[in-house]
Design a protein around this nucleic acid. Sequence first.
DNA 1: CTGTTAGCGCCTTCAG
DNA 2: CTGAAGGCGCTAACAG
Lengths: 353, 353
Amino acid sequence: MSVTLADVAARAGVSAATVSRVLNGNYPVAGTTRARVLRAVEELEYVVNGPASALAAASSDLVGVLVNDIADPFFGIMAGAVQAQLGPGGDGDAGPGPRMAIVCNTGGSRERELTYLTLLQRQRAAAVVLTGGAVEDEEHTAALSARLRRLAAAGARVVLCGRPPLPEPGPVTLTFDNRGGARRLTEHLLGLGHRVIGYLAGPAARTTTRHRLEGHRAALAAAGLAGGHERLIVHGAYDRAAGYDGAIALLDREPGLTAVIAANDTVALGVCAAFRDRGLRVPEDVSVAGFDDLPFAADITPSLTTVRVPLQEAGAHAGRLALGHDKAPADGVITCPTTLVPRFSTAPPPEKA
Amino acid sequence: MSVTLADVAARAGVSAATVSRVLNGNYPVAGTTRARVLRAVEELEYVVNGPASALAAASSDLVGVLVNDIADPFFGIMAGAVQAQLGPGGDGDAGPGPRMAIVCNTGGSRERELTYLTLLQRQRAAAVVLTGGAVEDEEHTAALSARLRRLAAAGARVVLCGRPPLPEPGPVTLTFDNRGGARRLTEHLLGLGHRVIGYLAGPAARTTTRHRLEGHRAALAAAGLAGGHERLIVHGAYDRAAGYDGAIALLDREPGLTAVIAANDTVALGVCAAFRDRGLRVPEDVSVAGFDDLPFAADITPSLTTVRVPLQEAGAHAGRLALGHDKAPADGVITCPTTLVPRFSTAPPPEKA
DNA sequence: CTGTTAGCGCCTTCAG
DNA sequence: CTGAAGGCGCTAACAG
């Protein structure tokens, strides 16, 4: 059927072992033999059988990357950065050769997350990177931890990227300072003079949601505004529809609203669309802020005030961690800073009529 | 080390062959034996060794998906749709079980595209889906065709999604009607009264670029405007920076410009930002249109006139073709229609002063 | 530096 | 319906 190592060996007049050695480059081989083998490989168009070598070597060059939604640039950017490290042209070229990323779309489903983890273990993945916020559900967290421990026991490196750390002894974790970022964002709005600020939070049971919300509340509390704001907090999905609907709901609930903070930039886009449809100008009538600083944030009109999250950097770092090229800190947790990016979608509230 | 089939067999008091049969469900096994085996699997937390079964069965459950840039929603949406068909919960559940998508980021590099194809062949991928526009380079096209033929010969199903067909005998192809969409878009602008229309095309040597440009030119020619417009065509990347810079360049070259068509929505965003910075209002002073109808197009201000490309549908279809669930037409080419979506970024040109 | 010898863990005839 | 046996293609000791 397909050409095998033995065929190449025969053609080059050497043993299969020798061919294997030149192909893997992990063992000294004479220059002339080497050349002969390489030529045979060319002539026969030989391509290594990955499964066979994975079996024999008890290791594979596959790395799993779990994301909630690959169509969302938030995840796309991280996945792309991870992958850039692993693949040809990346950091993975050093050492045994390029790894391939298996991107798994969980769609935010707990169940599918576990299923994929099992499938990855079945592939004997060399590493697994889990990106994005986790669902807050004790049962699921326990199941997840167990699965990850099993993976680690099977020799896979596990990296959490843009997630909160799991209970000890958890995997290496790159976590975003969502709380601090949210706090600074709310402070920015307060500093502009806003006193009635709506908050469109993400799905209720998500860590990302909770942390951002905590930062928001902390800023309000520090400004002595804690009390009345709970009714200005609305939960929804991380999409534009949630932003649109949420903005309308907030407006109906509190017409005196002068600013809205959205769970992320995509939601903020929906918010802006809703205000536009209601005849409100941003930022003259109402300020809007997002989170993440996705590429479009700088380009829309008005450009969006948001909080930059280092998705690219974190993804790249996660990739190197997955390759074992970067060393993890002692406690296994790396916090990535987030930074406020003030633009033109926020301004002082309108003068009171 | 890890628990194997034999361990499960021992525990269940059956032979390894029997365990294999219940796990693959492709052979009759007595109900009670079956149950006993399944229990042993549970108790031992057994996970099949993918590489080993791939080797023995000479088949794998991996599917490669090549994209230019996974951080770009254009590709994210297609990749997500492909993957949704393959993975757990998708169409792939029927039959031998879920497949896993290996998403490969070529970054638009010819070389990396070929490398990835080899890596996928090494994994003995069950199928390969290539998405997005191809580079127009005869040498590369030949190399690509050869590689794809080899893959097909090795038993992989090959599907082109959002690409022009390759010379016969090429793989199954889902292609977008870029030419028709572009033509209708330009006609829309002409119909509004525009006569000086800039065109920011994508990278020169891309099929997508060429086809869209051809549609644009066809519309101009039909309106008797063919001549003067060549200098209003500027090539650039498919990103916002290209849009920004291109718009500035066009403006300098032709201040009388009343409309700009961008290579895609992302580029259009850059164009809008440039006009905003130059103090021009969209659409009052100048109209802007995009292509693709990415989710944000409807939400930005003003909402973007664009051409909808059925990324989701095409991706899903490609996934089913890759699984072998959908049958390809006789000639192997399926053309996906594109539709004009007029919104508020286009309007009649300003009155002449 | 190179060849020989055993498996890696599973699937798949072939008997029973 | 089930067990036994061989081999998928490659790597990893071991000798030489």
